[in-house]
Design a protein around this nucleic acid. Structure first.
Lengths: 228, 228
DNA sequence: CGACCATTTGATATGGATCAAGCGATGTGG
DNA sequence: CCACATCGCTTGATCCATATCAAATGGTCG
């Protein structure tokens, strides 16, 4: 359950935004961030920000993947979310982060000063609306995550795979950026249970596992039935 | 796990706002609603709104208590939150409710048309900020709820009791408005486990149970240790 | 090749679910 | 005003899904 997180706080500032496909519609807060953001790079497992730190920046993933998490006093880690290319994270209405954020693999992100965004919002109703809408969508996401945690292991894993398949713009297989431990800590399971459930789904011909990180969704209907 | 919800859709419109102690600081969206809200009454177990309905109103509890919930396809019910006097619920940035809401006991609420609030927000930056702040706080609440669901039964129940003691402005005992089934569906446990855990906490002298709905927090430190 | 790390697989333990019955309070009709 | 039905809650017995503990396997990199 517990995970060590060898940090390697290697963040280098680069510059200049670039075009990103925001087709999935994250409000257009993504667009706003693209216009104003500076590029930063983080090495695998580098901390992007820590729990209880002041929330100085808002982030959008350009390449790579990010996890947010909290460590409970007993050492258990709960992952709050995974953020992939195009996803925004780190927004806090109150000025403090309630989760930590780390790069799952070498990643680049756009950053915008939160204070700038907040000031803009106070002048521009459209920006204010984007902030609200984004936070509301985040709320929905967390509510969905919460609903996952009362389901069976099979259902959780199936839901996770379906979600990832949707978000990873996958062709005929998905390439997971995160480890089994990350998945376990996201789903509230142990790594062993996640692994066993995967093999079980493979046995039932719902998925195929060419390698541990590469997963073919073979029987979408069966997975959907579990996802329900 | 499953619960029947004998509806009795008795909602009568009354009128006129009244002063409410908003001392705990819900932004001052609460104040805004007090200024504009109309009073509605709901009988115990009456539906206030349903999942997937358009979100026409925003609500603030004046007296009584409200639960929001979703029913999964297998019949399990997950309670999303309990809302007590002064609490606001039913805000949705997208125009649709994602949970249903019911009165836990006979309740009165203030209602404001969502459209009015949204229009106001587009003109008044302070209202826009209130909406954002409120939604962000709601997000934090749900994240806290999510963290609960990975803990042990004792920890969940202890956390629940501590939270309720804080929110119910209790003197030397708390008077729960909700049933064991509601608590179970909020904590992701069965009613039997909630009941057993309560008796266990009583045995350990952490609480006393003068009656099933009335609970004395006898050893706050022990509970805090579980809450952690 | 050898060391390390992630993942899988196996054996066993356990917390909470499930099935079932009992109990106390509340309300209703005779 | 009592007898009885109902409802919410508690308690008991057993089962099962997932956790825990342990070891084997496989892939990656120096």
């Amino acid at each position: 359950m517990l995970t060590k997180t060898p940090p390697a706080h290697g963040a280098s500032l680069r510059s200049a935004p670039m075009a990103i496909d925001t087709g999935t519609g994250r409000g257009d807060l993504g667009h706003t961030i693209q216009l104003m953001g500076a590029t930063m790079s983080y090495l695998r497992n580098a901390e992007i920000y820590g729990e209880n730190e002041p929330a100085e920046y808002v982030y959008m993933v350009v390449t790579g993947a990010v996890r947010t998490y909290r460590v409970m006093n007993d050492g258990r880690r709960q992952i709050g979310g995974f953020f992939l290319a195009g996803d925004i994270f780190g927004i806090e209405a109150g000025g403090t982060h309630h989760f930590s954020a780390e790069a799952i693999k070498d990643s680049t992100v756009l950053v915008v000063k939160r204070s700038v965004l907040v000031t803009l919002a106070s002048q521009d109703g459209s920006i204010a609306h984007q902030l609200w809408t984004f936070t509301a969508r985040e709320l929905e996401r967390v509510q969905g995550h919460l609903l996952l945690l009362i389901k069976s292991a099979q259902e959780r894993v199936a839901s996770f795979l379906i979600e990832m398949s949707r978000r990873l713009a996958s062709v005929d297989y998905i390439e997971l950026p995160m480890s089994r431990q990350d998945i376990a800590d996201y789903l509230g399971l142990t790594i062993e249970t996640v692994s066993r459930t995967m093999t079980q789904l493979e046995t039932e011909a719902a998925i195929a596992l060419p390698s541990s990180r590469r997963i073919v969704l073979r029987d979408r209907k069966a997975l959907d039935r579990l996802n329900s």
